[in-house]
Design a protein around this nucleic acid. Structure first.
Lengths: 240, 240
DNA sequence: CGCCGTGCGTCACTTAATGACATACTGTCG
DNA sequence: CGACAGTATGTCATTAAGTGACGCACGGCG
């Protein structure tokens, strides 16, 4: 293609994101079908209908071509988390909102999700892909940091905010890897369609990883109290 | 080389590790001095006194040359953790053992540590290095998983073990990044020589990230005996 | 219409990375 | 001590990843 008629409008940034995603889809498909090593940049470019130069313009490396599809899933979670009202608990919010988002998912979104899971699974054996996956999680961690910082009323660089974000992102990553493996092993998404149950898992894991500091409702504006260590243990989540 | 006087004995594996570390040192030095992009594989090889072919035999990629020096620090922690007696708390063990280990550190070890910190700091701005750093942390996470699994009396693949390991590794990573930045900003290691205080930080962070499940003494053989030394006021863990 | 900014393709080029083969070193057995 | 096996290294040739420089097509704007 080149040229002309490509899917049109939107900000330059949006168009850029679309192109990246399109390349990423083809890359992921090929990685899954033939393995990473056996897939060349030229092949990816060809499949996506662009020149190799364009591929390298959009991605630092071959493996990083997988990042967009892989990020999609985590990004959805982050988007939901951005709308997390201060007065509600994490579990509450996730259970209702994740289901809602899932309900309105376009079919292309489902395909992307499957593709993303495949990449996550592949990352278990292909070190090159693992770097891409870890970079995607790293990105997620930053976004989580912003959200947590806001919620706790602390600056973004705050060490405590960063540790909580890191712990939360890490458990989300492990859960994603676990779900990915389970989904692909079970042939299909059976049993993992139960979004509310999954949501509770995520909420509980995040809550645990931050020792209850992220997860509870918080006051309308205040930070979480005295900062340090010593946060009294909340009477935690009721068991799922 | 080169040839000749290469450092001698030991297992094949040990020799391999030595060569990797030597290459890694030179690579890190060059990365720091000139930036990653400006450093070629040939340059690294030359500085380390080996052929480029040898460099590629030992490392998947240019950036991953940094992994060994960067891993050293985390590896020291893991080694200490391996000797963590079941009857003692994490804080106790770290405070005494980390100081001991630090005391017996050869001067080369200190230089490596500084180099490692520099790489961690560089990883903040150079995406290529960030992948290496994240891969190193990923490795640490696996080792942590083994240790935690043993301590909790659960199989290695156990989801809970993995989430705890991931959370713990993540907070250790953030702390490392924080310390690295502080050390390099403060010109020198002043204030971060206080190993006991650092140890307490690490212990507390890990303890928090695993919601107290990793950190307490545990019984002689059992899994996490809830009755005994357990969490003072933990509401029950939901059955995963 | 002419002008500018941007994104893409083409081509030439650098260098990261691998394969194939010859050689040198290490430790072992006779 | 000397032949032997295994492994790590070097050299050379080659592929493929990734970059720079340039020209062109497109779309907005006065």
């Amino acid at each position: 293609m080149a040229s002309g008629g490509r899917g049109g409008g939107g900000t330059a940034e949006q168009r850029r994101a679309r192109v990246r995603l399109e390349i990423s889809r083809e890359a992921a498909r090929l990685f899954w079908a033939q393995g990473v090593a056996a897939t060349s940049g030229a092949q990816i470019a060809g499949a996506a209908g662009v020149s190799t130069r364009t591929v390298w313009r959009h991605f630092r490396s071959k493996e990083s071509c997988a990042e967009p599809v892989v990020t999609q899933g985590a990004l959805a979670l982050v988007r939901v988390l951005r709308r997390w009202p201060r007065h509600s608990s994490l579990e509450e919010h996730l259970v209702t909102e994740l289901s809602a988002v899932r309900g309105t998912l376009p079919p292309a979104g489902l395909a992307d999700e499957l593709l993303g899971m495949r990449m996550i699974v592949l990352a278990g054996t292909e070190p090159a892909l693992r770097t891409a996956w870890l970079m995607a999680c790293d990105q997620t961690e930053r976004e989580l940091g912003v959200i947590i910082g806001e919620r706790l009323g602390r600056p973004v660089g705050d060490l405590e905010v960063r540790t909580h974000a890191a712990a939360a992102a890490a458990v989300v990553r492990v859960l994603d890897e676990h779900i990915g493996a389970a989904v692909l092993a079970d042939a299909d998404l059976t049993g993992y369609r139960d979004v509310p149950s999954l949501s509770r898992h995520f909420a509980h894991a995040i809550h645990t990883a931050t020792r209850g500091i992220v997860g509870e409702p918080v006051g309308p504006v205040g930070p979480v109290g005295p900062g340090g260590p010593g946060e009294p243990d909340e009477p935690g989540e009721p068991a799922a």
